[in-house]
Design a protein around this nucleic acid. Structure first.
Length: 803
DNA sequence: AGCACGCCGACT
DNA sequence: GTCGGCGTGCTC
């Protein structure tokens, strides 16, 4: 028997199956999708069995046998195996990378080398001998000094020692000590025989009598009986119980469940949407629905009912949410409805916890997965529905290889299982809405809020006018008044500041110099907390200069409106306000995100000030005012999605206000009130925005009118990178059809990061049958020649941003 | 990607 | 003379 194996080596010539002989004793258990350990060249690596056959074209002499079978059960189903092939092809990545991304990180191999002493009698080096302390097997990493390494190398050449690679998994199954308590007759006998002074032993035996014959975790036994471990040990030695080990799952923080009442009656629109989805799932159709529902329209309730429907038919459900909104508030709703049938996968879990959640799915102990992007690879084998909430979110696209989009994977998987996909959003991506209009997706509309609240009233304030009036603060008069009012009424306020591209920078007022990062082509950001300047692209950090580095003027100070600066200004203007700041700095610690939100929901603060991360999912009844401090920050990015992102953000932030009984008000401050993305945020009229934005995309030749592929080059040497970018682009131009537009090569918007100069080239096309082949060829040229010369090149098919 | 093999300069 | 630099080529 021969096995085809993809080995755990990401390299260009290795990206194909290798044949191995299956040893006789493994023939009956070897299955496609299992992991194996195999010799590969001079070392040992982990591999995935992708096929089994009886004959091989490879010379008998070259075939090596499989060392070991790692999994008794396959870890990758045939469906996921073929999906990995497809994904590798579509995203131009290695098949091994596509396979690895499907499994929890804990299952990735760890390689450790050991020095084995083969002939102890031959060790004549005194230093090495004392180092060994009689051991015959030592980890190579302990040999960190050059003398010992040299000795070992020498012995290895003479065959006195050998080096062995051990392939192991990073995380193991967690086990706990259990105690099986003896039968009561045994316990009574013991009770007779213990020494009368052994009070504690007697006490424990008495307690155990009430639990005779039970098996329980040792820690629970000790806690419940209130007895110390040594006493238990003594009893076990005398036969009062038997020790064992039991597999357990690591328990992430228990969900804080409350009984959100299940709405008895769906709105008409919700019912129509649900019926459409259920019809598709009953008919076994791989239909993709775009559920376009305004904020607060009850999309989640539709998801929950559609899931219930497929669970009743014995099928499974995958729910994807953006990482940022994967808060306890959100996941609790699924756990309340489906209890222990839900597995939750988010980045806050430890590697071990993620592995345990994965095993629950693999063993079919759960039926529903709620998770971020990678949860799309949940190892179910009878998927009944896949849901992507907030489908327009860019976090669904992985930013490094394999550069897959969870939406594409969802649709591929649904085609395999013949099940529906729901893409839900208040502000769908232009691509998805265009597909819905063309009939590729089925459009479902929820135009009314479920509890019939009116949408919040939105006011746009022109900050240029404020400036003319002499108001130099970051708060307009209108916003400041509104804040005062809420503070008086004891209602809550959310202030949103999109920090990106508008952070505090240090500027010299005399010569205009902005302090730049020495490694990157970008200005440094001022961090108030530790009084330092930091680069957001590399790790560079420095102190704040006292004089201008260019002209030595003392008139150097920081500008801009970071969240820290905003916080200071709030304290100045509204000294009575209690402010919670939520940004990358205050949420770095695990669990701090939840802690801050809990504080706010318990009314321990009046104002929640934050970035991106507060735009989603917040649902607190007392929020009646939402202020956007500077709406334009996303608008002027050199990116074709700038307007779309701005509109989405404005709509989402506005949705935080007045979700319950109290009416909501939104105030948006901007320097470009006439821009349609901001103008339309007032009415939140998605379709009008869609039509205007489509016209612009058409004019400039961007998605969804054209497909795009972005190729980025970087090199330490500016001339070299320009040269390679030029070579690459020339190759594309000669190889692709004349209708395809190739823009570039040009310097990237941030032309240097980490001391590497960056160039890029953009391909726009409608139909380009030669695209994949051409890109493959380009990558081959890169991997076989250019890479050696220090070039880094990435190819991103359908990038979410070209910034 | 690793790792071994192989062919030329500065040291014991 | 040998240690060791990293160029080249292979991995079932």
């Amino acid at each position: 028997m021969i096995a085809e194996i993809i080995v755990d080596v990401s390299a260009y010539p290795i990206d194909r199956p290798f044949d191995y002989r299956v040893p006789k004793h493994l023939e009956s258990v070897m299955e496609v999708g299992s992991r194996v350990k195999v010799p590969f060249g001079p070392r040992k690596v982990l591999g995935y069995v992708t096929g089994l056959k009886s004959e091989s074209e490879v010379d008998e002499g070259k075939l090596k046998p499989i060392d070991e079978l790692v999994d008794l059960e396959p870890v990758v189903s045939t469906e996921l195996l073929s999906l990995s092939k497809k994904m590798a092809r579509e995203t131009l990545s290695y098949e091994i990378d596509a396979l690895q991304v499907m499994l929890p990180a804990a299952m990735r191999a760890k390689y450790e080398k050991f020095v084995i002493i083969e002939q102890p009698g031959e060790i004549d080096d005194a230093t090495f001998f004392t180092f060994l302390k009689g051991r015959t097997r030592i980890p190579l990493k302990e040999l960190d000094d050059s003398y010992l390494l040299k000795v070992v190398k020498d012995y290895a050449a003479r065959g006195i020692v050998s080096v062995d690679t051990v392939v192991s998994q990073q995380t193991k199954v967690k086990k706990v000590r259990t105690i099986k308590i003896a039968e009561s007759s045994t316990l009574r006998e013991l009770l007779q025989s213990v020494h009368p002074n052994a009070k504690k032993q007697m006490e424990l035996l008495e307690w155990m009598l009430h639990h005779a014959g039970e098996t329980m975790e040792a820690s629970k036994l000790l806690k419940d009986s209130g007895i110390q471990n040594p006493v238990l040990k003594a009893i076990i030695e005398r036969g009062g119980g038997t020790e064992g080990l039991a597999e357990v799952y690591r328990e992430p923080d228990a969900p804080n469940l409350k009984d959100t009442p299940i709405p008895i009656q769906l709105t008409d629109e919700q019912q129509v949407a649900l019926d459409a989805v259920n019809t598709a799932s009953d008919g076994g159709e791989a239909e993709t629905f775009l559920l376009h529902g305004v904020t607060g329209s009850g999309k989640t309730e539709v998801y929950l009912r559609a899931i219930k429907h497929v669970l009743e038919k014995g099928k499974e459900a995958i729910v994807l949410v953006p990482e940022i909104s994967l808060t306890p508030q959100m996941t609790a709703r699924f756990q309340e409805r489906f209890g222990s049938l839900v597995a939750v996968m988010h980045s806050g879990l430890s590697a071990g916890e993620k592995y345990d959640e994965w095993r629950k799915i693999h063993r079919r102990e759960v039926k529903v997965v709620v998770g971020a992007r990678s949860a799309i690879f949940a190892p179910f084998e009878n998927v009944g529905i896949i849901i992507l909430d907030e489908e327009h979110e860019s976090t669904y696209k992985q930013e490094d290889t394999p550069r897959y989009h969870a939406r594409d994977v969802a649709i591929w998987r649904s085609e395999y299982y013949g099940c529906p996909v729901i893409l839900g959003s208040a502000t769908p991506s232009l691509e998805s809405f265009a597909r819905a209009k063309k009939g590729v997706y089925t459009l479902l509309e929820l135009s009314k809020r479920a509890k019939n609240q009116s949408l919040p009233s939105v006011t746009v304030v022109d900050m240029r006018d404020e400036l003319k009036e002499g108001n130099r603060s970051m708060f307009s008069v209108a916003l400041a008044d509104a804040i005062h009012q809420r503070l008086e009424r004891k209602e809550q306020i959310v202030l949103f500041l999109n920090k990106r591209g508008f952070s505090s920078f240090v500027l010299c007022r005399d010569c205009g110099t902005v302090v730049q990062c020495p490694n990157c082509d970008i200005s440094l950001t001022y961090h108030r907390a530790n009084e330092r300047l930091k680069c957001h692209y590399c790790a560079h950090e420095e102190g704040v200069p006292l004089v201008c580095p260019e002209c030595e003027s003392e008139h150097i100070r920081f500008f801009g409106t970071g969240t820290q600066k905003a916080e200071e200004e709030i304290y100045k203007l509204f000294p009575e306000a209690r402010v919670l700041r939520m940004d990358v700095d205050t949420t770095r610690q695990k669990g701090s995100h939840e802690r801050l939100l809990r504080q706010f929901s318990e009314g321990k603060a009046d104002i929640l000030l934050g970035t991106q991360m507060i735009a989603k999912g917040l649902d607190f009844p007392n929020i009646t005012l939402v202020g956007v401090l500077a709406a334009d920050t996303t608008l002027h990015l050199a990116d074709f999605r700038a307007a779309e992102k701005t509109f989405q953000l404005m709509t989402q932030v506005s949705g935080r206000a007045g979700r319950h009984e109290l009416a909501g008000e939104v105030i948006i401050q901007t320097y470009s009130p006439e821009h349609y993305a901001i103008e339309l945020a007032k009415t939140q009229h998605y379709e009008t925005f869609y039509n205007l934005e489509m016209a612009s995309r058409k004019q400039y030749g961007y998605p969804p009118f054209y497909y795009i592929t972005l190729i980025q080059f970087s090199h330490k040497d500016l001339l070299k990178v320009a040269d390679f970018a030029d070579k690459g682009t020339r190759y594309l131009k000669t190889s692709l059809s004349p209708e395809t537009v190739i823009i570039g090569p040009a310097a990237a918007a941030i032309s240097r990061v980490n001391n590497r100069y960056r160039y890029q080239c953009l391909i726009k096309y409608k139909i380009e049958p030669r695209l994949t082949d051409t890109l493959q060829q380009l990558i081959k040229m890169y991997r076989t020649n250019w890479m050696k010369e220090g070039l880094l090149m990435t190819v991103d098919v359908d990038p979410t941003s070209i910034f």
